[in-house]
Structures are given as C-alpha cells and as structure tokens.
Amino acid sequence: GTEDLKEEAKKALKKGDKERAKRALKKAGLSEDQIKKFIKEVL
C-alpha cells in the first residue's frame, strides 16, 4: 500500500538512493511537488 511505499522511500533515502525513493513515491501516487517535499522532509 501507500504507507509501505513511503517506508520504502524513506529507507532508500537514508541509503542515499534518491532514484529508488522517487520510483516508490510515484507508485504511491504522489505528484512531483509532493515527492520533492517528501524528500526534503526526510533528508
């Protein structure tokens, strides 16, 4: 589900894998702006 994808994105970001995080967030249905915001909040 969406929460799982967001968790996956957080883990990817902590490993420095932004591309993987972006893919997971796109799958979760987030827009580009939401993805940028999510990444900023996590990092």
Rank of each mutant, 00 (worst) to 15 (best):
K36S: 11
A28I: 06
K11P: 01
V42Q: 09
A24N: 05
A28K: 02
I39G: 00
K27H: 06
L5R: 03
K40S: 14
E41S: 10
L5H: 06
K18M: 15
K18D: 08
K15E: 15
I39S: 01
G16D: 04
K14S: 09
T2Q: 11
E3P: 07
V42F: 15
K40L: 14
A24W: 11
I39Q: 02
G1T: 14
K6P: 03
K40R: 12
A21Y: 02
R23S: 11
K15D: 14
L13I: 10
K18S: 11
I35D: 00
K40T: 12
K27W: 05
E41G: 08
D33Q: 09
A28H: 03
K14H: 11
E3G: 08
D33W: 09
K18E: 14
K22G: 05
A9S: 02
L43E: 09
A21M: 04
I35T: 03
L25T: 00
L5D: 04
A24V: 13
A9G: 02
G29I: 00
G29R: 03
A12C: 07
G29Q: 03
K27I: 08
E32I: 07
G16F: 05
L25K: 00
D17P: 01
K11N: 12
K11V: 12
A9F: 04
E8L: 11
V42G: 05
G16S: 03
K15Y: 11
A12T: 02
D33R: 10
A28R: 02
K26L: 13
K18Y: 15
K11A: 13
G29F: 02
D4C: 12
K6E: 08
I35N: 00
G29H: 03
E41D: 12
E41R: 09
A9P: 01
L25Y: 01
S31P: 04
K15N: 14
K14A: 13
D33S: 11
D17V: 02
A12M: 10
A12S: 06
E7L: 10
K15R: 13
D4Y: 13
L5S: 04
E8T: 07
K40N: 14
Q34H: 04
L13C: 04
V42M: 10
I39K: 01
S31N: 11
L25Q: 00
D4T: 10
D4L: 12
L25G: 00
A9M: 03
K6Y: 15
I39V: 05
F38S: 01
K6V: 14
G29T: 01
Q34Y: 05
K14T: 07
E3W: 06
K27F: 06
